[in-house]
Design a protein around this nucleic acid. Structure first.
Lengths: 142, 142
DNA sequence: TTTTATTGTTTGTACATACAACTATAAGTT
DNA sequence: AACTTATAGTTGTATGTACAAACAATAAAA
């Protein structure tokens, strides 16, 4: 039976998990009016006002062109603004953006609570760190 | 530092891994002329000629509308054909489709070898099964 | 100082996946 | 048989992410 082969492929299982957890995250972040990745970008800016897009791209592990698109949208929502500094474009939160911080933090907590309830707190945390480590290994490879 | 918080979130790490392994898989499957998901669908049909789209959707863990789109494209490439059977549409491989089987199998092996080399065979396999289990847990939850 | 290379960002385009609403067929009820 | 409900698939549209090529600004080399 092929079904059993599929689940032995990392491409297959990693993406399946990605879709499931993305759906959960979208549901939890819905009350913020943002999808998770936008919320995460915003969180980075809360933590690092004036961050450059390149830095954002490194921190979020997304391509620069993707960050451009995310930034565009958050600007159009009035949550951040950008200020050119040489060839860089530095990102800051607006007042409206700042006012969203507690909500986003709440969503973030809710998401973690939700999957921790199912997987167990320890188990969930451990898995998360492992995925991060594995990603590093796969990336830092010629 | 927020960077460290992000990597403690399962949404974040699972999707990051998903992107990395997807890239690897796309590279490996490139010689087949298909992206990985299309190849996987084809593999299911090799194993189960006359499979219905609903079954495909369950086996691949994709939504029916997505399967419709994948099937459309594989038909347009002449690799499979579909035959209506009541309200179902049953999928079969064409000769051209069959002739691709060895290549796809090779890609599949190459991909596994590639990440096994980096993660270790045992480690990679174990992680893969775990991701599958975790996905089940998260899904079979009210 | 003019030319060349490097770096950060943007733009056009493409792709995988999903949702919501729809069509079509089958199955159950009265 | 007629009416209702359930099931399988499709269609229009949206979203997240990326690539390749372009652009802009700085730095390095000539």
């Amino acid at each position: 039976m092929l079904e059993n082969y599929l689940k032995e492929c990392l491409y297959f299982t990693a993406n399946r998990l990605g879709r499931i957890i993305t759906k959960m995250a979208e549901d939890e972040f819905a009350i913020s009016g943002l999808s998770p990745t936008y919320a995460y970008l915003l969180m980075v800016v809360y933590d690092k006002e004036g961050v450059s897009q390149k830095e954002l791209s490194e921190i979020l592990h997304l391509k620069p062109s993707t960050v451009t698109r995310l930034v565009e949208k958050l600007i159009s929502k009035g949550l951040i603004y950008s200020q050119a500094e040489g060839r860089m474009s530095l990102i800051y939160t607006t007042e409206k953006g700042k006012s969203l911080q507690p909500t986003i933090h709440e969503c973030w907590m809710n998401l973690r609570r939700k999957y921790s309830e199912i997987l167990g707190e320890k188990e969930g945390e451990e898995l998360t760190l492992r995925l991060d480590k594995v990603s590093d290994q796969l990336e830092n490879k010629e």
